[in-house]
């Protein structure tokens, strides 16, 4: 997954989101070692300080763990990851549903649309 950073939002919040995505999608599996801050910063073409800040926040949230001697890893707490993943999903869905409502769609219409598109996606 390439890093996609937009210019009008703080970089560190975008970094947090994109690292979360990688965790949820399994690109960074539970317990996996993360590259060094500097390597990650280089990969994303951002300032190491900013990357550090993003990782610190993720640590606060429990998704990332720092080991004194062996650097950073993704948490092994699969439960927590699943919860966070679901929470993000719910956020996205509620935003989406709100928008559909604003456009004037009824709940049933929304569901039909979603089901149809999911079918097409599988193909």
């Amino acid at each position: 997954m390439p890093w996609d950073l937009k210019a009008d939002r703080p970089i560190y919040t975008q970094l947090i989101e994109q690292i979360e995505l990688r965790i949820f999608s399994g690109e960074y599996p539970p317990g996996a070692r993360l590259p060094s801050v500097r390597d990650m910063a280089q990969e994303a073409s951002v300032n190491p300080n900013t990357m550090q800040r993003a990782l610190a926040k993720l640590e606060e949230d429990g998704l990332v763990v720092t080991h004194r001697t062996s650097g950073r890893t993704i948490t092994e707490d699969v439960e927590m990851i699943r919860n966070a993943k679901n929470k993000l999903a719910e956020q996205q869905i509620s935003e989406f549903l709100e928008k559909m409502q604003l456009m004037g769609f009824e709940k049933r219409e929304t569901l039909t649309l979603i089901t149809k598109m999911l079918e097409e996606m599988k193909k």
């Binding site: 210019a7 009008d8 939002r9 703080p10 970089i11 560190y12 919040t13 900013t50």
Partner: peptide, 15 residues
């Protein structure tokens, strides 16, 4: 800081 500008003003530093 760059992030403050983006946060508070909602735009890039360039803008």
């Amino acid at each position: 800081t760059v992030d403050n500008i983006r946060d508070e003003k909602g735009k890039s530093v360039d803008a």
